[in-house]
Amino acid sequence: MALKDVRILIVDDELFFRQVLRAVLEQIGFTVVGEAATGDEALQQYKALRPHIVIMDIYMPDKNGIDATKELVAIDPNARVLVASASDFDSDIQAALDAGAKGNLMKPFVPKEIYETIRKVLTGK
């Protein structure tokens, strides 16, 4: 699958982080098909857009990324969710992985790490 064919949904309550992540992903060559600011929006966008990858912030008001990931994986067991966080709280990242996330990305975002993580999730390696 070519990079431009990889469709990504960005979920973060902070517009700044969505903009930064979109710029990094598009610079790498991925296609960002949508953005959501809440967990509920993420679920609606996922159903409508069916992206290959969802990059989900852990800490959001209303519905956090862990709960949204659980619901997303319940809708589609094959959903590929990567959680994004500036936190080093291993318990939060582990909770997200237990909820069905396939990996995590640390803020601030590093393009090479994003590329490698997405590649691993897509190829299963």
Score class of each variant (00 low, 15 high):
M1N: 06
L3A: 07
D5N: 13
D5V: 05
D5F: 03
V6F: 04
V6E: 04
V6I: 15
R7T: 12
L9Q: 09
V11K: 02
V11Q: 02
V11I: 07
D12A: 13
D13L: 09
E14M: 12
L15N: 13
R18F: 03
Q19T: 15
V20N: 06
R22A: 08
V24E: 11
L25G: 13
Q27P: 00
I28N: 10
G29L: 04
G29N: 04
F30H: 02
G34T: 07
A36P: 03
A37E: 15
T38P: 04
T38A: 05
T38K: 04
G39C: 03
G39N: 02
D40V: 10
E41S: 01
E41W: 01
E41F: 01
L43S: 04
L43P: 04
L43M: 06
Q44F: 02
Q45D: 09
Q45M: 13
Y46C: 08
Y46A: 11
Y46S: 08
K47C: 10
L49I: 08
L49Q: 14
R50H: 15
H52K: 12
V54P: 00
V54H: 00
I55Y: 06
I55F: 06
D57N: 13
I58C: 06
I58R: 05
Y59H: 12
M60G: 03
K63S: 00
K63N: 00
G65C: 08
I66L: 04
D67W: 00
D67Y: 01
D67M: 05
A68F: 07
T69C: 03
K70I: 07
V73E: 05
I75Q: 15
D76F: 07
P77Y: 05
N78M: 13
V81Y: 09
V83K: 06
S85C: 10
A86W: 04
D88G: 15
F89R: 13
D90K: 13
D92C: 01
A96D: 07
A96K: 06
D98C: 07
A99S: 00
A99H: 00
A99M: 00
A99N: 00
A99C: 00
G100N: 05
G103P: 06
L105A: 06
M106C: 12
K107P: 07
P108C: 02
V110M: 10
K112N: 14
K112Q: 15
K112L: 14
K112V: 15
E113V: 15
Y115R: 14
Y115N: 09
E116S: 11
E116V: 09
T117D: 03
I118H: 06
V121A: 12
L122H: 04
T123L: 14
T123V: 11
K125S: 14
